[in-house]
Amino acid sequence: MSIVNYHLNKDLSELRRHTFGNSVDRSALKKLVSMVFSPCRCAEICKRSANIPNTKRVAQLEGDQTLVTEELKQDDEENTSSDHHQATCLCPGHERALSIEGTVKALDIKEEGVATLLCYLELHYPSWLEIFNNVYSLCNIRCYGGPAQLQAIAKKCPPVAVAVARQKLEGKSFSQSSELEFKVINVCDAMGWNSGLVKRELTALQWDSGHGGFRKSGVLVELSDLSFHFRSRGDLTDDQVDEVLGFLTSRTQRQEQAELGQLDMLADALRRVSHKNSWMCSEEADLARSDSLKKDLEDFFDRERRNHGDEEELNIKVTEPNSNALSQLLADIRQFMSIYGHDHSLSGRSIARILHGIASPNFPAEIWGRVRRFWRAHLHVDFPVVVREATKMVVAMR
């Protein structure tokens, strides 16, 4: 049970790296919230339909912004007030898919980190977000029979017809094209279809049925781009978006502080029962210190169970570096930005991670670990201090 304080402090620095590797900037959280709750046109279409007398919306196609209406008979019971109409015109939610690879790269957060943040949102706002299993969201159709075959399957397969129509509105021509690529989830959401059934119908295009059984049709359907799959509302107000962002920020900060606090508590418990030298406990076991450590560990886990879900924030002490260490830190940050700032999108946290030797999706250890001049160069300086100084430098050099 002999532990030297120097080695214990080094272990703490190494263990804290795992916590700081999962920390997230507010700017990254803001990007994620804008991706998940991207604005829709439900309120605009609902307001437009309210201004059309004796009409009823029966279908909506977001791609070409078409509103299909049908005439209704005059009926006093159906003449509701505008306030009631607006109350019933809330966004029902849209089926969406975010590419895992693209989201991880855009946010510089690991896949499991993004999934955790989405779970936080679903648990706190169950009526605004519903998470499904990950899906392949990109469909690629290649017709070996040429453009004529693509036109033929568009006539018999509504999802393909909608995808072709949406891309024609964007100016793409299919007169000489035998290949079609589109996002399945977007088409399904626009038409109100079940994405699972649509994918089954698309994959069925590869086979033709006849008297002799099934045979290949000459159509190749490939589903790719694994994505986060969920249903979310798109009519959140600015105040509601700020509320979501504030919740995510405070939730991630509490998690970070809780993990750091647990490390410090365990370190203090080990430090209290440790000996200065190994020979002091090599002859016989110190039962008194052993029992003391057992009690501290039991209290630690009991406290963790009692505080589960508690929103009480812990105050983590941050040690400020001396003037020499701070000047060296600023010089290294400035030099790092002058070398790599033009080729990479740098933030204060990304620079701090490299200086602490923490890998991230955009800055993997396999590549940046070779930059020995900066990798783990300031592990002895507290991570929040490095983030603070690096952020100041990034803002000043923009």
Rank of each mutant, 00 (worst) to 15 (best):
V273P: 06
E122G: 00
F228Q: 02
F374W: 10
L326N: 12
D75M: 08
E95K: 06
Q74M: 14
D299F: 07
N186S: 08
N315K: 14
G196D: 15
K168Q: 06
T237G: 05
L12V: 14
Q335H: 14
N362F: 04
Q176G: 07
S38T: 01
S178E: 13
A204C: 10
E259R: 15
N54A: 13
L29W: 10
V184S: 08
F182L: 00
K10F: 09
L180F: 03
Q86C: 07
S13W: 09
H94W: 03
V386W: 09
R372H: 10
N307D: 15
V24K: 12
R334I: 02
D25R: 09
A115Y: 03
R398L: 04
P159L: 09
A28T: 03
V386D: 07
K155G: 05
L205W: 08
N194C: 15
D332Q: 12
L205E: 09
A359R: 04
E62Y: 12
P53M: 06
A50T: 01
S232D: 11
Q255N: 08
D76T: 13
E95I: 02
T66K: 09
A285G: 08
N362C: 14
G348P: 00
K168C: 01
Q253Y: 11
Q60R: 03
L220T: 12
L263K: 02
K156F: 07
A396G: 03
V318L: 11
L90C: 08
T249R: 02
S323V: 06
I185S: 03
V33N: 03
R334M: 10
V33D: 00
S27A: 05
E170S: 09
L107I: 12
G309C: 13
K30N: 05
S232C: 10
H342N: 15
I141C: 04
A43Q: 11
C91A: 04
A97S: 13
A43T: 07
V114W: 08
P361M: 07
E283F: 08
Q151L: 12
D310E: 09
Q262W: 10
H7F: 11
A325D: 15
P159I: 03
P384N: 13
R96Y: 02
S34H: 02
R233F: 06
L117F: 03
A50H: 06
V273F: 05
C143Y: 10
N22V: 00
G369C: 08
H229G: 01
L266C: 00
R272V: 04
S27K: 01
A365H: 04
I52R: 11
M337T: 01
S173Y: 00
K10H: 14
R96E: 01
L98R: 03
E122I: 04
R254E: 13
D291W: 09
V4R: 11
